[in-house]
Structures are given as structure tokens and as C-alpha cells.
């Protein structure tokens, strides 16, 4: 496989609140190769967004803080780099788009204003050149009448068009990696498909890696090559999209996939995983999913399972896979907690 451009190693981001320390992201390790589309899936509050904000070093602090691990971007550890260096990286080498296209643009300025501003942060070009580039970018993301739209205000555009503009801004400096935090959640299904298509095209053309954060397995199936499933701040399963969707290993992933409505089956009550996600807290004993797991046994409630290697890059944080390959102990889980 091609070179790894982004590698999270044992990344831990904790929030220090009035109710104590909360490990929102707990020893997460993720690799993204050049030009690859990796999905992070999980329900609300599982630490997906905090992971992405940690990469950008945009965790609101206080209360949040990266307490351990490395974020290696092309060999450089972002967790230790200066804010000045980060400002050069953000938007230039790593870009990010957000969930809410309706509020991601400043309502007071025209689209052009905001695009030109973003371009001129990282490139020494004149306003005129920036404007030309912006128009080209708008055309590339499929906005009709780009020459007029550039002088319009955000409120004059629909949600889908605004998300296109956001993507245009994010891609304008040709970043190595695009972090997309639920880019299609706020859009309706047809627009969703268009935005995903657009992201795939840009991914093909420029070899931009994409880290796609979503709770929608449909989106994952559509665009991702590899998937990381997160639960309560931890990675619980990792594999290729095909493997995860066809043959989920972790009981949580199995539950997720079982709870999807299926086209060919008669309308029935959908399956749901009993219980709710436990709030992440320090010093939790045992598997985080144990209380909701149908296949939990005693050990699950006492010992924190590691991320067991099943084969190749396939990993699952479940004791069911412990005995099968005893040697494949993931160092992520064994190193920190003593």
C-alpha cells in the first residue's frame, strides 16, 4: 500500500469537567494512506468528532486536552507542534468540512469574499487571481453560474450548494487530507449522494485522502475503503468496508448492521441494540459494550479487552477473538494503562 500520511497512535483526548475527567477519545490508533478514504463510524458521543478536532488541534481548551499519544502527519507529530505551525497546516495541508453547511459560512460576507480570504491565507496571490481560482473551484464542485454565485451571500444558497462551497474552500489549497465531519448529515438524500460523488471525484483527481466521519453506514458503503468503528471513545473494530459490512466481528458492529432496514425483507420492527451508550468515564472496568452485549461473559465485565488482531489489518476489541490468535496483541491497548 502507498505511504501513510496520517497516523494516530494511542491518541487520548480527555475533557476535564465539573463532573471529573472524561476520556472522550481513549487510545485511538488510526492510519490513513495517501489517497485513501477512511471512515470513522459510531453513534453520537462516541468520540468521532473529538478525534477529528484533535487532529486539527482545535479541541476547545479548557476543558479539552490531548493527554497522550501521537498524531503523526507526514512524520511530524501534530500533538507537539506549535500553534504557529498548525495555522500553516490547517486549511493548507489538512482541511476540514463540518456537519452544518447552513452555519459554516459567515452570513455577512459574500461567497467570493470568504473563498478569496481562505486562499490568500496560504498563498501569496493577488485578489484578482484568487477570485479567478475561486470561480474555477466553484465550477469544479459543480456550482452553476459560478460567476454570479461568487458575489452572492450564503443565505441565497441552498444547503447542498453551501456544502459544495465549503468543499470548494476546503479543497482550494489542495490539501493532502480532507477531514469531513458528517458532511452529509444535514442534507437530504439526493443531495447527499451528489456530495459523496463530488468527494469521490476530488479524491480520484487529486489523490486527496479523506477521513470521513459519519454515523451512516450507507455513506460508508458508498465511498469508504476502510472503516474504523468507534464506541464510547475507543476503536472497537477495524477493517475494509467489505469485511466490516459483510462479516462484522465485534458484537457492537454486528448489532449496528443488524439494525439497518433491509430492502428485500418484509416490513418488520427494526432490530435495536438494547440500552444506551455509557458515558465515558475514567477507570471503567471491563468492556464498554459489555452491559449491552448479548454475548458477554464474566471476563467482559472485569477486564478491559485489547484490540485483538484477527488477520491482516482486521482488528476487533472483543474477547471472542482472544484465543484464536493469541499472539496478535495490539500494542495500543497494552502500553498505556498500568
Amino acid at each position: 500500500m502507498s505511504e501513510v500520511i496520517l497516523e494516530l497512535q494511542d491518541l487520548s483526548t480527555h475533557f476535564f469537567t465539573d463532573y471529573g475527567e472524561i476520556p472522550a477519545v481513549d487510545r485511538v490508533s488510526i492510519k490513513v494512506h495517501k489517497g485513501e478514504v477512511v471512515g470513522i463510524v459510531g453513534e453520537s458521543g462516541c468520540g468521532k468528532s473529538v478525534t477529528s478536532l484533535s487532529i486539527m488541534q482545535l479541541i476547545p481548551s479548557p476543558p479539552g486536552k490531548i493527554v497522550g499519544g501521537e498524531i503523526r502527519f507526514k512524520g511530524e507529530n501534530l500533538a507537539l507542534t506549535t500553534e504557529k505551525r498548525m495555522k500553516k497546516i490547517r486549511g493548507n495541508e489538512i482541511s476540514m468540512i463540518f456537519q452544518e453547511p447552513m452555519t459554516s459560512l459567515n452570513p455577512l460576507f459574500t461567497i467570493g469574499n470568504q473563498m478569496i480570504e481562505a486562499l490568500r491565507i496560504h498563498q501569496k496571490i493577488s485578489k484578482k487571481e484568487a477570485k479567478e481560482q475561486s470561480i474555477n473551484m466553484l465550477k469544479r464542485v459543480g456550482i452553476p453560474r459560478a460567476e454570479q454565485v461568487i458575489d452572492e451571500y450564503p443565505h441565497q444558497l441552498s444547503g447542498g450548494m453551501r456544502q459544495r462551497v465549503m468543499i470548494a474552500i476546503a479543497m482550494s489549497c489542495e490539501p493532502e487530507i480532507l477531514i469531513a465531519d458528517e458532511p452529509t448529515t444535514a442534507l437530504d438524500v439526493t443531495i447527499q449522494a451528489q456530495i459523496l460523488d463530488l468527494m469521490r471525484i476530488l479524491n480520484d483527481e487529486k489523490e486527496t485522502a479523506i477521513l470521513l466521519i459519519t454515523h451512516d453506514l450507507g455513506v460508508v458503503a458508498e465511498i469508504c475503503e476502510r472503516v474504523v468503528v468507534m464506541y464510547s471513545g475507543q476503536v472497537v473494530e477495524e477493517g475494509t468496508t467489505r469485511e466490516i459490512l459483510k462479516d462484522p466481528k465485534h458484537p457492537y458492529t454486528q448489532g449496528l448492521i443488524k439494525s439497518l432496514p433491509k430492502l428485500h425483507e418484509k416490513e418488520q420492527k427494526l432490530y435495536s441494540i438494547p440500552g444506551t451508550v455509557p458515558k465515558p468515564k475514567m477507570d471503567r472496568k471491563g468492556c464498554r459494550f459489555a452491559s449491552r452485549c448479548e454475548r458477554a461473559f464474566d471476563r467482559c465485565f472485569q477486564v478491559d479487552p485489547e484490540l485483538f488482531l484477527i488477520e491482516g489489518e482486521r482488528k476487533s476489541r472483543c474477547f471472542l477473538y482472544d484465543e484464536k490468535k493469541g499472539d496478535g496483541i495490539d500494542r495500543a491497548a497494552s502500553s498505556i494503562r498500568s
Partner: peptide, 14 residues
């Protein structure tokens, strides 16, 4: 707390 401020930060703005 507005998203466009977060977006501006994510663009590397000072």
C-alpha cells in the same frame, strides 16, 4: 461557538 468561526479556524486563520 458558531460553526463558521470553527471553520475559519480550520482554514488556518489567525
Amino acid at each position: 461557538e458558531e460553526e463558521y468561526i470553527m471553520a475559519a479556524k480550520a482554514q488556518g486563520m489567525k
